[in-house]
Every structure is written in C-alpha cells, then in structure tokens.
Write a protein that binds this DNA or RNA. Structure first.
Length: 435
RNA sequence: GUGGGCGUAGCUCAGUUGGCAGAGCGCUGGGUUGUGGCCCCGGAGGUCGAGGGUUCGAGUCCCUUCGCCCACCCCA
C-alpha cells in the first residue's frame, strides 16, 4: 500500500478545521494591526536560506531538504554534490518563513529607501529533515508575520502584543503561557560579546561537553541553551549579554520593556535566550505553554541585518512564527477544542419511489445555500434517520408518497421531534429561515 | 546521527508453555407495514506490516526488512 512520506501528515476532518481556524483568526487579528497576507514559494534558492538563516545553524547545515530536477539529479550524484551547479539550480524547500518573505521584499523593493514600513503575514508549510517526534514534523505549518522598515521599539512591543493576543484568541489562558524575552545586541556590540563567550568556553574546555566546544567555534551563544547540567553550571558565570550591550541596544531594550509594561504584558527576562537562527539582533522572544510538553509554540525577534544579507538596502525588520501542530497539541492538553463543529446540515430522507422528488428538493436546498445531505445507498428510512443523526443534521426533510401526492414535505426538527408540513415550493425558504 | 518502544478488524487494543484469530467501540440488518439517539437480537469485516527460516503446526521462536511512536540534538 502506498504511504505518506516520513514525518508528514494529512490534514483532514477536525485537524483541517483547526488549521483553517488558525488562519481565519490570524487573518482577522493581523488585519487589524495592518498586516497583509503574502505567500512565497515553498522552493527557494539555497543561498536565500544560507545567507539569511546562517551557515552555522543546524537548520542550514543538517535540516534543509535540497531539491533538484530529475534531469539534474544524476549529474549531482555523479559529481558527488551540488557545488558545481549554478546558484539558481541549487534549491531547497523552505525550513522557515522569514528568509523567503525578506527575499521577496528585496526583490520587489517593498520598502524603498525612506519608505513606509511594510507588514506581511503568512500561513504556510515548512520543511525540515529532522527525526519526527511529538510536535515535530518534517512538513509542518507555521503562521507568522514580518514587519519590515520599522526601527521603533514600539514595533517590537506591538509584535509581542499581537502574538499574545493571537494566542488568547486561539483559546489559550494567558496565565498558562510563559513569555521570555532578551536582547541579543547588534553589529556594534555582539561580535565582541561573541568573542568573549568563545574564549570563556575555551577557558573552561575541560568542564564542557563536546557539543559546547563545537558551539564555541560555530555559535558560542548557543552554549547557553545546552541541556547538560555541568555546562549550565559553567555558563552561569559566563559573561552576560545584558552587560555587554552597547548604549543603543540597551536603550532600545529598555524601551521595549517599557512598552510591554504599559500594555500589561507579563514577561520573564531570560539573558540566556538565544534564537537558533543567525539573523536575529536585539529583541528576541519565545512563548512556551506550561505542562504541554511540546516545546516552544512560538518565537521571533528583530533582524535588522537580514535585508542586507539578502542583498537589499539596510532595513530594520522583525517578526515571529508560531507552529500549528504544536499549538494544536498544546490546546488539546489544556482541554481547548480548536476543531470546531462541522457545519450544521439538513438531511433529505425519502422512500425509494420518491427518489426523484428528493433529488429535486436536495438540489433546491443546496442552491439556496443550505448544506444538504441525502441517501445514495438506497437504505431504509430508519437507516436514513440514523445517518441524519450521525451527521448532526438539525432538520430532516421527509419525502414519502403522502407528501409528494400533496406537494409538500415533512420537516422534522431532530432535537424537538416536531414535524411540520411545508409546500415543496416553499421548502428552501422555510429551511433557510429555520437554520 | 544516537537510544528506547510498538506494528493483530475501520478505531483502541487482548491473544497463556507454539495448537481452529478475539473483545470493546464503530459499521450493517432486524426488533418498529414511513422516523434517529437508549435497549435487545443477528451479520459483515483480518495477506496478524512485509520477506525468509525453525517446526507436524508460528500472531507467538529466530533472521532480514519496511513503517510508526517517544527521547536526545535543534527548533515552531
């Protein structure tokens, strides 16, 4: 039997309704904050991700699905890699949403020099070649937004505010959410800080795990994320980002916090919070659900250097993304239903001799916009009622010989058991009014 | 990449020292000559993930393989 690819899922039934609901709630909320929808290709040139996300990140080094046309694949295999291909022939499935949106912004010059900021949101599938586990898939879905051209700390705060509002509208109890924030510095202060952390780790090399030693060279800040207790203990004494921030970054961070305070947003400062994508600068944040066991359900931050990395003019930017599958699991663990009820419907039941009349009545109801179901298996009236019940039909229209002879239909209210007779030519109007 | 767990009916799972493949739910027919949910009675539905081996005999033991779940890493 054919089966789906490892780490992928089919979205259907309540699961699909939950995804659609996440998109619908987002569209309404983000619209109020001035965000327009965008959809970028699932396929981008590899360099778009390498430049944006960073060569040293796991996402780029280990998790991207590379893509070649069937014509190029033999060539790649024979020559032992894609290095000889032209840049435009090296493609990858997007592992995250920001790089593609920023590439589009550069390519279409969404933010001309001195122009107004552009605000975009998306809801798309992402792809990462990891081993699947709870809340982690190889094809998963993120809703995210990007705000390009705004340097104001108010934008950082508003980003966080709209994120928390989104969670609230999806049904999360704000008390169960833990928002952590930090500032990662910028091009002025981070390189020196990075070097300081690197030498700190190397000075304590004999106390740290191999992973952290590797991190020292690739991305020293990530050592703060190490789960190893010994490494954690050592890193307690490492230089702190907060002490190393330049005046501009410190001032920016302070203002962001003031805006958050003013908006009544609860947050925890975590000086070790380091987002795993290299493009982040200054403000970063992450949201977890207590006890859900699915990791972070959302995260993001500022990326003032990213537009340049993608070949654009210097343009500040920031954004975040949330993971649909994790939010779905987290809400489930909190007992919140995101799946919604199926649309209420009407069932048309009939006796075999009246099938033609039922056919016409069904069509008339549907043309009036009423979700209508009927029997297509020639089953007994009893079975048809059972089916109507299972589908959650509010009304059941019965067409038997008596009804058709009189030019009427019996309409039964499934909950109250009330039955009334309605002339066939008024059926659609009557049913529409009742729903 | 590393380490655990699991593949038996549509779903959730039992299956004893190797001896006729089971239950609950769901589906379906009837109990009701034209009426659902509850109840009662009947029925259908299985290459036991796949391939090979041991055996008189394998869901069960051995080998191989595919797949899924969970954890580490990293991340949404």
């Amino acid at each position: 039997m054919a089966q789906r690819v490892q780490g992928t899922e089919d979205l259907f039934g309540g699961y699909m309704r939950a995804w659609q609901r996440m998109c619908d709630v987002g569209r309404e909320l983000f619209g109020a904050y001035g965000f327009d929808a965008i959809e970028t290709p699932a396929l981008e040139q590899v360099d778009t991700f390498v430049h944006g996300i960073g060569e040293s990140t796991d996402v780029v080094r280990k998790e991207m699905f590379r893509v070649f046309s069937g014509a190029l694949l033999p060539e790649v295999l024979e020559r032992g890699g894609e290095g000889h291909l032209k840049p435009r022939q090296r493609m990858a499935m997007r592992p995250e949403g920001t790089a593609g949106v920023v590439r589009a912004a550069v390519e279409h010059n969404f933010v001309p020099q001195g122009g107004a900021p552009v605000k975009l949101w998306y809801a798309e599938a992402m792809f990462r070649g990891e081993r699947p586990q709870k809340g982690r898939l190889r094809q998963f879905h993120q809703v995210g937004l990007e705000w390009l051209g705004a340097e104001d700390p108010a934008a950082d705060a508003e980003c966080v505010i709209v994120l928390m509002e989104y969670f609230a509208r999806l049904g999360f109890d704000p008390a169960k959410l833990r928002l952590t924030i930090n500032s990662m510095g910028d091009a002025t202060c981070r390189p020196a800080y990075r070097a300081a952390v690197r030498s700190f780790i190397l000075d304590h090399a004999d106390e740290m795990c191999d992973d952290c030693l590797e991190r020292a060279e690739l991305n020293p800040l990530r050592a703060f994320d190490c789960k190893n207790d010994r490494c954690r203990a050592v890193m307690e004494d490492a230089p702190k980002l907060g002490d190393a921030l330049c005046d501009d970054c410190r001032s920016h961070y302070e203002q962001v916090k003031r805006y958050l305070d003013a908006a009544g947003i609860a947050y925890v400062e975590d000086p070790t919070l380091v987002r795993g994508l290299d493009y982040y600068t200054r403000t970063v944040f992450e949201v977890e659900v207590e006890g859900a066991g699915v990791g972070a359900i959302g995260g993001g931050g500022r990326y003032d250097g990213l537009m340049e990395l993608e070949g654009g003019k210097p343009t500040p930017g920031l954004g975040w993304a949330v993971g649909f599958e994790r939010i779905y699991l987290a809400l489930q663990s909190l007992g919140v239903d995101l799946t919604g009820e199926g649309d209420s419907c009407v069932y048309v039941a009939c006796m075999p001799e009246q099938r033609a009349a039922a056919f016409s009545a069904t069509l008339a109801l549907r043309q009036a916009g009423v979700r209508t179901e009927a029997d297509y298996q020639g089953r007994s009236l009893k079975a048809q009622f059972k089916q109507a019940n299972r589908l959650g039909a509010r009304l059941c229209v019965v067409l038997g010989s008596d009804e058709v002879a009189q030019g009427v239909a019996t309409v039964r209210d499934m909950a109250s058991h009330e039955q009334v007779q309605v002339p066939l030519d008024e059926l659609a109007a009557y049913v529409s009014a009742r729903l």
